[in-house]
Simulated scan of single mutants.
Amino acid sequence: MALSVDRIEAAGPRQMVGPRHQNRLVIAPREHAPYCPFLFLAEDWFAPPAGFPTHPHRGMETVTFVLEGQMIHEDHTGAHGELEAGDIQFMTAGGGVLHSEMPGPQGVHSLQLWLNLPAAKKMSPARYSDQRAADAALVSGEGFEVRLYAGRFGAAERAHGSLWPLALMDLRLEAGARLELPLANGWRGFLLVLEGEAEVGAGGAVVKADQHAWAHAQDADDVLPLTARAPLRALFYAAPVIDEPVVAHGPFVMNTVDEIRQAFSDYQTGRLTQAR
């Protein structure tokens, strides 16, 4: 039995946050439980001299999707990489990371998802996994094309680069094309429409550009039907729910206030990235 959409929400307004830097919060929960394990999703347009110089994280993961341009990243271990349009970076902050994310010479348009980690994994070693667009699995059918970065679609399957399981796919559909998105039992997913318009879920809820539709498979593995009402590009994210308290402050996401205080103390005293 196909899933129905739980709710449809709209991205926040686009705003100037600094010279050559615009940003909007696509997903900005006031409470975390209905969105778990997704913490928030930010969209940025930035070019030199704007960017995100070296900054810390602990207790979560980021999933960065480059829509246009180039992003250059470095971290405290000396790791360095460049992401081009269609590339994705999975970054596990775990117990602590210091990294920077800067635009290439012509700038970058990116989406960055913050993905929670359960308490048992929050202090894991930091790590990166870059996935190139050319390495994603490409699945096509009648009027649709799916670029699979992580998870499963049809007979195709890709390992997730995140520590916490994640499905991620880039969808392109012609008007009238239809497909079914898999959602495993206990997983929550959302469809973000970048361009076009679609009917989503068993009830055919209409989702337009800059909106996202949510669904949760609570009893068994299921599917979320999708039909394009106009030429469509959308991203689909899904992951298992983490039913734990969330305390987020600045760049740190933990389970208790005391753990947040410890994270700030470790950062201020230079111990954030020390092995544990």
Rank of each mutant, 00 (worst) to 15 (best):
A2M: 07
D6Y: 03
P19F: 09
P19E: 15
R24S: 02
L25N: 12
P29C: 07
R30K: 15
Y35M: 06
F40T: 03
L41Q: 02
F46Y: 14
G51N: 10
F52I: 05
F52C: 06
F52A: 09
P53V: 11
P56E: 06
M60Y: 08
I72K: 12
H73S: 05
A79R: 13
G86T: 09
Q89I: 05
S100H: 09
E101Y: 09
Q106V: 09
H109K: 14
S110P: 01
L111N: 05
W114P: 00
K121G: 00
S129P: 01
D130S: 13
Q131P: 00
D135G: 09
D135P: 08
Y149I: 04
G151C: 05
G154E: 03
G154A: 06
G161D: 06
G161I: 06
A167P: 00
M169P: 01
A177P: 04
L179W: 06
A184R: 14
G189E: 00
F190K: 10
L191D: 01
L194S: 11
E195F: 05
E195S: 13
A202M: 01
A205K: 13
H212C: 05
A213D: 02
W214V: 15
A217C: 02
A220T: 13
L224H: 10
T227N: 03
A230C: 01
D243R: 14
D243M: 04
P245I: 06
V246P: 03
V257Q: 15
I260S: 03
T269R: 12
